[in-house]
Design a protein around this nucleic acid. Structure first.
Lengths: 145, 145
DNA sequence: GCTTGACCTCAACTTAGCTTGAGGTTGCAT
DNA sequence: ATGCAACCTCAAGCTAAGTTGAGGTCAAGC
């Protein structure tokens, strides 16, 4: 094994495709905790490449950074997420996706029922009321972009 | 018919469930165009109740205000959206929902394939690359909250 | 030992969709 | 004719997930 496996931020950026500023931002949010050199420069562990890759993937699946932080809470800094971790975390993610698909299918169904009716009657329109239901939870899923 | 069918903003807020400030904000965005009294107070048409209801519903379906503005562009101020309008607009919305469901199903499939692999290999992981694909279009669907 | 690119912090700016507050005016019921 | 709730404008603040820029420091190769 090589003596010095610590990466400066620019290298990590190149390895993950993230911008340097984004990595610094993630540190601020507590998602990574690099060491520092005597001169105050960040030095990351190799395992942080995967950690950040995981963040990227989870984000694309629609999780917010704070949700990702929760998901990563079980992983000590410096340990690469392994197959078991990934299974646990992706299981949670899958549930979210399932719920999201179900919600959208419900909407589509209501929409089908509504096309041609044109009522837009508040309190009576299924669509409107369905919307109310899942529009209300302040922390509901947030997706795609 | 009553002589004066114009509503002050508070009444409209009560009828739609929107806040007064949100209605003013929508006006600023060009989504409604109330008349004004001699004393500069807003007076809305009754048809604006439905117009705003439509905005609420469309928003819950994941359209941004500017997309809603586009969708409403065909409706002259003062005309309640009728069945034909609703059919046209909801047809567009349905396509968006279908696309969204399809995208999520693709992700779920990839995720199923990935669980247990734990690779997280950039450049090789289907999930990661799938993510890249639909993460890239700057104006993709934006959903649920 | 010096140059230069990579790094540092901190503050301000971005978009979307509003809310909140200050300070002032209107309109309707009595 | 007056009281006061409801209205008005304008400016600033909020969240998310960063980016951009100014001004300054570090470290590595020659």
């Amino acid at each position: 094994m090589k003596a010095n496996d610590l990466l400066p931020i620019g290298d990590l950026a190149r390895r993950t495709g993230l911008s340097v500023s984004a990595i610094r931002f993630y540190e601020e949010k507590g998602l990574v905790e690099p060491h520092r050199t005597a001169g105050n420069q960040r030095r990351f562990l190799r395992s942080d490449i995967r950690r950040l890759s995981f963040i990227l993937i989870a984000q694309k699946l629609g999780l917010s950074l704070s949700e990702i932080e929760d998901a990563l809470a079980g992983l000590p800094q410096g340990r690469t997420p392994n197959a078991a971790d990934w299974k646990r975390i992706s299981g949670e993610v899958k549930q979210r996706i399932d719920a999201q698909i179900a919600a959208l299918e419900k909407v589509r169904e209501d929409l089908d029922g509504c096309i041609g009716c044109g009522c837009l009657s508040l309190k009576k329109c299924a669509l409107y009321n369905a919307g109310d239901k899942w529009g209300e939870g302040g922390s509901g899923p947030r997706v795609l972009r």
